[in-house]
Amino acid sequence: MDDVPGVAKSRSVTTSRIDDRRSCTASGPGLDVHQRCLISVGIVAAQGRYEELATQVRGAVTSGCTQEEIQEAILQAAVFGGRDAARKSLHVADTALKGLARWRPRR
Rank of each mutant, 00 (worst) to 15 (best):
residue 71 Q to Y: 10
residue 67 Q to E: 10
residue 100 L to H: 01
residue 36 R to P: 02
residue 42 G to L: 05
residue 67 Q to Y: 00
residue 9 K to A: 14
residue 23 S to H: 06
residue 42 G to P: 03
residue 49 R to G: 07
residue 18 I to N: 07
residue 64 G to P: 06
residue 21 R to K: 09
residue 33 V to W: 02
residue 37 C to N: 00
residue 7 V to P: 11
residue 77 A to K: 07
residue 50 Y to C: 04
residue 56 Q to M: 03
residue 24 C to Y: 03
residue 58 R to I: 10
residue 17 R to M: 13
residue 8 A to I: 04
residue 85 A to D: 06
residue 49 R to T: 08
residue 25 T to I: 14
residue 63 S to E: 04
residue 101 A to W: 04
residue 102 R to H: 11
residue 55 T to V: 12
residue 41 V to A: 05
residue 88 K to W: 00
residue 10 S to K: 12
residue 1 M to P: 14
residue 56 Q to I: 03
residue 87 R to Y: 08
residue 94 D to G: 15
residue 81 G to R: 05
residue 88 K to D: 09
residue 54 A to T: 04
residue 68 E to T: 11
residue 45 A to I: 09
residue 20 D to K: 13
residue 63 S to Q: 09
residue 64 G to V: 03
residue 26 A to D: 09
residue 89 S to K: 06
residue 44 V to N: 06
residue 68 E to I: 06
residue 79 V to T: 06
residue 67 Q to F: 03
residue 92 V to D: 02
residue 57 V to G: 03
residue 17 R to W: 06
residue 21 R to C: 12
residue 7 V to E: 01
residue 50 Y to A: 00
residue 14 T to F: 00
residue 23 S to C: 07
residue 94 D to A: 15
residue 36 R to E: 01
residue 8 A to H: 09
residue 33 V to C: 07
residue 104 R to E: 09
residue 70 I to S: 01
residue 107 R to Y: 06
residue 103 W to H: 13
residue 55 T to E: 08
residue 8 A to V: 06
residue 38 L to A: 09
residue 74 I to F: 01
residue 31 L to P: 02
residue 13 V to R: 11
